[in-house]
Amino acid sequence: MAVDKLIWKIILDFFVLACVSFPLLALVLWGKPYQRGYFVNDTSILLPYKEETISVGAVAGSGFVFMVATILIVEFFRDRQGKGIGEKFLSGAVLPGWLWESYQTIGIFTFGASCQQLTSDLAKYVIGRLRPHFIDVCRPHPITNSSLNRLGYIIDYVCASNDGDRIKEARMSFPSSHASFSMYCAIFFIFYIQVKGKWRGSKLLRHGLQYAVLIAAWFVGLSRVQDHMHHWSDVTVGFLIGAIYACLVFIYVLKPKKYSALPMTWDEPQAPPANNILPSNVLPRAVLAR
């Protein structure tokens, strides 16, 4: 019965992930962003088009590989130190405890990543904010004498460019998915290492790694503004989405309270408790009285 429950748990986990991932795929294949208009004198969308410094594939691939490698390494060494959860049995086979713990953590991380990505991508399609390079990519021509354009806000127009994919992307500036995913990975990593990355060596090593990952996520967001892919407010909201999802998923889904028996800080030698409870200024007199 225990084996059956374990198998059903894995099946249900993949089913939930599929339910979250399918809307993402549907948006990419069939979604059309809202076709927002623009003001003639809007200088925020007049920047030239630039090739992006960090592609979507680079962010997604490096983020997942980094987190998976981190989780596997940490869980393996925790198991070697006797801090694992013990062996599991799957279809009659013995599954190392660190591997099962890694599977659960990676699954939760992936679930949170899918949720935050769906949140940011859905906003892109619903809001349809124009990227800073929209004019350069679209080269719009307003329809002459159109009643929709009479107030100076151009709604009725056609793009002279024939690059449909690039025009579609130019309508999805808000929020920044790069910033959202990179900050999600950074905050999740910081929390995970803080709770489970115990080492009696340098106290600054762990915090140095946490800072390096945070700065890497910060750079990803800054590069999006530098590359004319997003407005600064798009990146700001993307950072917030990623950070909020990382906190919620780590605290309420991964539930680090189950590791509460372990100290949340670096292991420090503790002094043995004192046998007396007398104040220090009274202790000498008490000794003399004996």
Results as ranks from 00 to 15, higher is better:
residue 92 G to W: 12
residue 92 G to A: 11
residue 92 G to K: 15
residue 92 G to I: 13
residue 93 A to F: 15
residue 93 A to W: 15
residue 94 V to M: 10
residue 94 V to T: 09
residue 94 V to H: 10
residue 94 V to N: 12
residue 94 V to E: 13
residue 96 P to H: 09
residue 96 P to Q: 11
residue 96 P to T: 06
residue 96 P to M: 04
residue 97 G to N: 05
residue 97 G to K: 09
residue 98 W to M: 11
residue 98 W to D: 09
residue 98 W to I: 12
residue 99 L to C: 13
residue 99 L to Q: 07
residue 99 L to P: 08
residue 99 L to K: 10
residue 99 L to H: 07
residue 100 W to N: 10
residue 100 W to G: 05
residue 101 E to Y: 12
residue 102 S to N: 04
residue 103 Y to T: 05
residue 103 Y to E: 06
residue 103 Y to W: 10
residue 104 Q to P: 06
residue 104 Q to D: 08
residue 104 Q to W: 11
residue 104 Q to L: 08
residue 105 T to A: 02
residue 106 I to G: 02
residue 106 I to C: 02
residue 106 I to T: 00
residue 106 I to P: 01
residue 106 I to K: 02
residue 107 G to V: 02
residue 107 G to M: 04
residue 107 G to Y: 01
residue 109 F to G: 00
residue 109 F to T: 02
residue 110 T to Y: 03
residue 110 T to K: 00
residue 110 T to F: 02
residue 111 F to H: 00
residue 111 F to Q: 00
residue 111 F to Y: 00
residue 112 G to K: 00
residue 112 G to W: 00
residue 112 G to R: 00
residue 112 G to V: 02
residue 112 G to F: 00
residue 112 G to D: 01
residue 113 A to T: 01
residue 114 S to F: 04
residue 114 S to W: 03
residue 114 S to P: 03
residue 114 S to V: 03
residue 114 S to G: 05
residue 114 S to M: 04
residue 115 C to D: 01
residue 115 C to T: 03
residue 115 C to F: 01
residue 115 C to N: 01
residue 115 C to L: 07
residue 115 C to S: 03
residue 116 Q to C: 05
residue 116 Q to Y: 00
residue 116 Q to V: 01
residue 117 Q to Y: 06
residue 117 Q to K: 06
residue 117 Q to M: 06
residue 118 L to S: 04
residue 119 T to E: 02
residue 119 T to R: 01
residue 119 T to A: 02
residue 119 T to S: 03
residue 119 T to K: 00
residue 120 S to H: 08
residue 120 S to C: 08
residue 121 D to N: 11
residue 121 D to M: 09
residue 122 L to C: 13
residue 122 L to E: 08
residue 122 L to K: 08
residue 123 A to G: 06
residue 123 A to S: 10
residue 124 K to T: 11
residue 124 K to C: 15
residue 124 K to P: 11
residue 125 Y to E: 13
residue 125 Y to T: 15
residue 125 Y to M: 10
residue 125 Y to H: 15
residue 126 V to A: 13
residue 126 V to T: 14
residue 128 G to I: 12
residue 128 G to Y: 12
residue 128 G to P: 14
residue 128 G to D: 14
residue 129 R to H: 10
residue 130 L to T: 15
residue 130 L to D: 14
residue 131 R to E: 09
residue 132 P to K: 08
residue 133 H to I: 10
residue 133 H to G: 08
residue 133 H to M: 09
residue 133 H to F: 13
residue 133 H to E: 14
residue 134 F to W: 15
residue 134 F to L: 07
residue 134 F to Y: 13
residue 135 I to E: 05
residue 135 I to K: 13
residue 136 D to V: 09
residue 136 D to I: 07
residue 136 D to G: 07
residue 136 D to N: 12
residue 137 V to H: 05
residue 137 V to F: 06
residue 138 C to I: 04
residue 139 R to N: 09
residue 139 R to Y: 08
residue 141 H to Y: 12
residue 144 T to K: 14
residue 144 T to M: 13
residue 145 N to Y: 15
residue 145 N to C: 11
residue 145 N to F: 15
residue 145 N to P: 07
residue 145 N to T: 14
